[in-house]
Amino acid sequence: MTSERRLTRVFVELADTLVDEFDALDFLSTLTERSVELLNADAAGVILIDAHGVLHVVASTSDQAQLLELLELQNDEGPCLDCLETGHAVVNVGLAQSRARWPRFSAALAEVGFQSAHAIPLRLRDSVVGAMNLFCEADSRLSDDDVALGQALADIATIGLLQERAVRQSGLLAEQLQTALDNRVLIEQAKGVLIASAGIDVDRAFRLMRDYSRRNNQAVKDVARRVVERSLTTDQLTGP
């Protein structure tokens, strides 16, 4: 298969993954595997930076401890950290070159048996949310075209992460909407309970619950729930 056709198939595969029952971790894992194939690397990992600036390995081509360590290590030093700081790809980092700049990273790289490393940023508009790391057993070099392809793959990873966030956000909003609706209904039902059991009008019923909620530092919705469940009597509501 020509590399172009192969490339198309990879992109279609990744696009398909984005549609149904999306799982962000599976998606990133697939992405690392395809990136290794297309860029003639031997291992890859995706690192994301959290709100506190800590790097986390979220996907890799293997669970090999040394590879994970190599990725984790870059919380302190390495091409990935540079890539995250500058927002630019850091590619074709050979053993000799890295020894001077990142001695610990270089030692770990040699220990796993890699000769070179690359880091490509996951960019979201002006910010960098993470990076994709590639490692090669041979001291191979990425051409400009390879780097452009790597960036395209990294951009797809970013889209996948955005998709995941959108799903989570919409679920959160839907839950908030449901809770707001539940509380509204509950408060009205509680008013009705108080109207019937205390012989008061609807405004007085609400004021009773609101005043009790303030005196006892409880949310009105929680007071309403207790009224509906009959665990809070009218006497208790009016009492001190």
Partner: peptide
């Protein structure tokens, strides 16, 4: 809202 209030009322 009146329907929910009446529901609470009737439950008592």
């Amino acid at each position: 809202a009146v329907i929910h209030q009446a529901t609470g009322f009737l439950s008592v």
